[in-house]
Amino acid sequence: MGTAIAFYILAALILTGGVLVITAKSAVHSVVWLVGTIIAIAALYVVQHAEFLAVIQVLVYAGGIVVLYLFVVMLVNLKRPAEAIVHPQRRERTGLLLGGALLAQFAAVAFYAFNSPQVGTAATYSARGNVEAVARALYVEYLVPFEVASVLLLVAMVGAIVLARRDA
């Protein structure tokens, strides 16, 4: 009961935040709403007993990545370039296409989740402790994908530096 109420309140906050992110006039305001949304999502994780995930969400997204967004948004004075509003239709079409694809993906995930047996919720993991559960999943059960993903990220990082250096 309490969980449900918390979920609906947070869900409403998240959706409101999300809408404000795209409707806010100033880019800085958008970023602020984005932070709000991220924190609300973190709170949702807490309700689901995934405290570790919640903390990491705040630490990495709110505390790290979005700070950099804010940096860029503040430094680059975003005056809308003239040619951006030339083809509103084309942008709308692309947007619709991407939105549709995203919706389809969510639907697929939801469908899969409802139809597959319960493999273990966050609650069953939290019996062992959140951190241990995540650590076990990452470093024991899915070690190879994890390592592959980290190599991929490293390559992307190096690539970004190389591109930036060539420009300068």
């Binding site: 602020v32 932070v35 405290e51 570790f52 903390v55 705040v58 630490l59 505390g63 790290g64 700070v67």
Partner: peptide, 18 residues
């Protein structure tokens, strides 16, 4: 007493930056 107390501190502190 959170079992992730330290991470909690670090992440909350990072919000103050905003």
């Amino acid at each position: 007493d959170l079992d992730i107390g330290l991470l909690y501190i670090v992440s909350v502190a990072s919000i103050g930056l905003y």
